[in-house]
Design a protein around this nucleic acid. Structure first.
Lengths: 182, 182
DNA sequence: ATCCCATGAGACGTCCGTGTCGCACCTGCG
DNA sequence: CGCAGGTGCGACACGGACGTCTCATGGGAT
């Protein structure tokens, strides 16, 4: 069943987000299967990594959908987005570390679409007056996704409690490091 | 003279920050020397990468020194830090992408010291009431360095103008995405 | 002009990861 | 009980990158 492939892909995300150069051997062990079976499921390493990337993109896009980032108050939309996407921080860390994947035009387009949707949210917020206009929406989007990847790394290395990820991302990104009431 | 080694190391930072798996061949070409000379200068790939990391750490630490982050008003210290360290964003991007280097205890300690100094700055700012206390100083430090790496990537890919890096980092990190005056 | 020496070019062996195959096992089913 | 399908294990060949070596070249110093 397809669950097999997906569970292998999820295990691979975990390994590859930490070690982008991990060998098929390590990925197979992390997935609890043998190297032979891994090759039976996927034609080769490239195909595996590209499928991992595809799944990661779909899961991130699904988080954008679930958060309905195109609707309602932009600030609330960002909060919903953070809630929905922090559980996908590992995927973001993987994609950030596997930047050479973006030679593939299909994957590049998928990433571009995610980035564009997030940027559109920030642009909408700038037009509504909620977000600062000094910072380009494209940079806000990139910074948000970079911080998301940072959350993924920090959680994996145990430097950040998983439950703390959402507030760490939301509070820093929206409010910054400065106290506002002084 | 030592300048040779350093100029090669700087060229290597540029390549490896984009392509952490770049071959000796590509690094040599980027440095304008042959693969043979590259091997004459450095015992091997591991040694080269570790020296690149060492130089990157020293340059980042020098930026902390130059900004005198241990002195004066914490907010001003962060602004000085951003000014001084954005020119080292490529190094930060390299170190972020080469996380497996941190198995080496010496490099790990050097990174830990940089991280600790930045975290101490934020802790100092929290104690003085300038920075928000809801966000752990360790996370502020990590997020700051993640955003710095993000600036490095964005500049290299041409998505962010080099001169815009400092304000992009400072404004987002200190003030967040929200407008403060409404 | 001569010598020295660093460099570039190319060839070579080695290692590691990949991809494929054959075989044994085991589990579920008829 | 026998069988079929899936899985693990080990062996193999292949390829690419690494590391080393030799040799020719060219620029600089004496």
């Amino acid at each position: 069943m397809a669950t097999d492939r997906d569970s292998v892909l999820l295990a691979a995300v975990g390994v590859l987000s930490r070690q982008p150069t991990a060998a098929m051997d390590e990925i197979a062990r992390a997935a609890g299967i043998s190297r032979a079976t891994l090759h039976r499921l996927f034609p080769g390493r490239d195909a595996l990594v590209r499928e991992v990337a595809g799944l990661a993109m779909r899961r991130m896009a699904a988080a954008l959908d679930a958060a309905a980032i195109e609707d309602g108050d932009p600030v609330e939309a960002v909060r919903r987005l953070a809630d929905a996407i922090v559980p996908r921080a590992t995927e973001a860390a993987f994609l950030t570390g596997e930047s050479r994947l973006f030679d593939d035009s299909e994957l590049w387009a998928a990433w571009e679409q995610i980035d564009a949707r997030v940027a559109a949210l920030f642009l909408r917020g700038q037009q509504s007056g909620a977000f600062r206009v000094e910072l380009p929406a494209a940079w806000l989007s990139e910074a948000f996704l970079d911080l998301l990847a940072g959350v993924g790394w920090a959680v994996q290395e145990g430097r950040l409690a998983p439950r703390a990820g959402t507030s760490a991302l939301t509070e820093l990104f929206l409010g910054g490091a400065l106290r506002r009431d002084q």
